[in-house]
Amino acid sequence: MSFSPELHHWLILSTILFSIGIYGVLTRRNAVGVLMSVELLLNSAAMNFLIFNHYASKPFIDGAIMALFIIAVAAAEAVIAMALFVAIFRSRKTVDVTQINTLKG
């Protein structure tokens, strides 16, 4: 057994980060916290693209481009989410996701 990082080391690392993100999405009460957990998910997904690019298709660069796209999408998402939080906070004075349930029937 070798300790130097191989493909499965990398994959396990990104999976751990992803599952931590899942935990955060499900348990966080603060909406900004949920957004941060989503960023964790996106980050580990981008990492996975790069890992597979590095180990499975080294001469090509498509995985890196996917990572770039993920970063761009994450930026767009963060902008929208922040605008929503500010708007919600202005009307509700809270960003606790368990209390923002006006749409619930």
Binding site: V32, L35, M36, E39, A78, M82, F85, V86, F89, V95
Partner: peptide
């Protein structure tokens, strides 16, 4: 993104 998030935290 992190600075945006920090902003969101500061505002809320």
């Amino acid at each position: 993104i992190v600075i945006l998030i920090v902003f969101a935290v500061m505002l809320t």
